[in-house]
Nucleic acid binder design. Sequence first.
DNA 1: TTCCCTATTTAGAACGATCTAAAAGCAGCC
DNA 2: GGCTGCTTTTAGATCGTTCTAAATAGGGAA
Lengths: 335, 335
Amino acid sequence: MKHRRVTLDQVAKAAGVSRATVSLVVRKSPLVAGHTRDKVEQVMADLDYVRDIGAARLRNNSSRTIGVVVPNLVNPFFTEFLSGAEQVLGQGDRVVLLANSHDDTHLQSQILQRFRGHGVDGLILCPAAGTDPALMTRVRDWGLPVVQSMREVGEDLTDYAGGDYIAGMRLAVRHLVDRGHRRIAFLSVRARTSARAERLRGFDLALAETGATEAGITESDLTWEASVGAAGAVLAGRPTAILCFNDVLAAGLMVGLRRLDVTPGRDVAVVGLDDLEMAQMVWPPLTSVAMHPVRIGASAARLLTRRLADADAPVLRECVAPELRVRDSSGCEKV
Amino acid sequence: MKHRRVTLDQVAKAAGVSRATVSLVVRKSPLVAGHTRDKVEQVMADLDYVRDIGAARLRNNSSRTIGVVVPNLVNPFFTEFLSGAEQVLGQGDRVVLLANSHDDTHLQSQILQRFRGHGVDGLILCPAAGTDPALMTRVRDWGLPVVQSMREVGEDLTDYAGGDYIAGMRLAVRHLVDRGHRRIAFLSVRARTSARAERLRGFDLALAETGATEAGITESDLTWEASVGAAGAVLAGRPTAILCFNDVLAAGLMVGLRRLDVTPGRDVAVVGLDDLEMAQMVWPPLTSVAMHPVRIGASAARLLTRRLADADAPVLRECVAPELRVRDSSGCEKV
DNA sequence: TTCCCTATTTAGAACGATCTAAAAGCAGCC
DNA sequence: GGCTGCTTTTAGATCGTTCTAAATAGGGAA
């Protein structure tokens, strides 16, 4: 019923050549003569030969497999990221080994062990909150090329692909200030990640540049439900505009505001970050700063491909430039 | 710099036993004596030994790797599904090989070849629209256990995990009829999948049971933007209520309706399917039928685990029961 | 013809695990 | 000591590839 897989040897026998020759054909070596190649390829097609990549890796040490670790598979930001990475890697005939760390460093290191056992060629890692920078050097000692993405741990330890959140915050704050807002609140998150630090720094810089004042920084869990409940705390600082850590929190916040009879886009301006598709679906449509997660994922995949080709290439940081998308949620002027 | 991997042989040498014994320890065989096991485990920890699963598979034919193919990685429905499957498989110490078919049968078969080459133990497949049922028997001939999910091709060819969309449509239609609606439209999709057929059948059944009349079936592409533009066509049938293929289309439709100065939840009732998180974020909050994609993913993973354990187990269909979630978008009574 | 050179092809040893079948150890018992 | 029966350990073949180094072909030139 379940028959064994077709091997190089069987193809070789059927084509009347040696196993080594067939192997050369499989790897598209220029060494084989045209007529030999044709014959072997014909036989491979007839027998439905599929090369065993695991066995190949045993010899040549390349599994064409990339481990991707994200902290949250349900957050559309990370799935768009994943989608971009998968796309690029698939084009390079590589395959994605996916895992969700749930932002748990313990689970994360289990996952890395598992990936190591599977002989992945490289790693795209969005490090879980609280990841020890030493992890990066450890991974490097394993001989595993890594690209960090969306979040970063340590300084220039690895390549990195992300969005420029400092620029993003600036765009958002300037937009609000242009519309006459002076008291701006920030709905942040509790989890200590570089993504959070970067936004806070951008916020400070932007406030200093524009002369606007901070009207309170509230911390929420990184879920939609949590931000609904944060609305009261955010309003306590009497802001006329609220910047949110991302669109998911912004969407929740708007629901929370409405429950307190505050209408976003009229009574208070709300701005998100990321510009996920949902920004256009909520009401009022959410002003947001596009971070292009799909592009970031693609960029991470390309960085990793580059490093696989040259282990000693200089460490690179790639930041996708953000774009402001003005919609109705920041519609209220305060002049 | 990049040192070789630690092998069984090295552990064996260091522990003063044979490679075979170490292998037994790795596999937790009860054959090894307690003191030997302890010593070997100590050495493994000291040397940071990681078992090479690829090499193991070559001999014992189990890669602890599962291929998962989804048609759209950006659709939150599928990512929640994926998340459920990944979770369960990870617990069984298996790893997910992920690929996105973009609903393209050609790309899908490329992916399957790739997965085959990687020696996956099994497959969770949400078949791309237009997939030939013969694919399932072909995959079976490869000796690959498959579970179809979310969509199904062929009759009882493989195990299947999905949501009960017939029941879901019934819940939705009854709810609308209870609120006094008699003219109900359905915003459907163009792609011919079992998911579409099932919903249409449920719609017909529910109409027949309740005596409500169909107020037009419009077809849209399966994207948010497309459904925004479909609003005009949907209204042409003069419905008092609109049922949508899923929440993504419902969200788009509501935006489209508003652009035509029709307020969803007041001028016309809108109901979605799936109950994604976004149902609560749109305005007005969307009445929807929860399909529990995370549970479906988990169920698919369990079905596959079962089949891996027993290739001859009877073919099983598992359908997660839907639940109606009433919110404001169906708020308008028509009595 | 012989020799050399380049273009192809190949035998056989890896890679790191598991499996099979058989060998050692170690009691207890005659 | 020799035998039986049990537990524990092991040598060596094996999985399907790639690599190395060497063998073989096929022309020309001398």
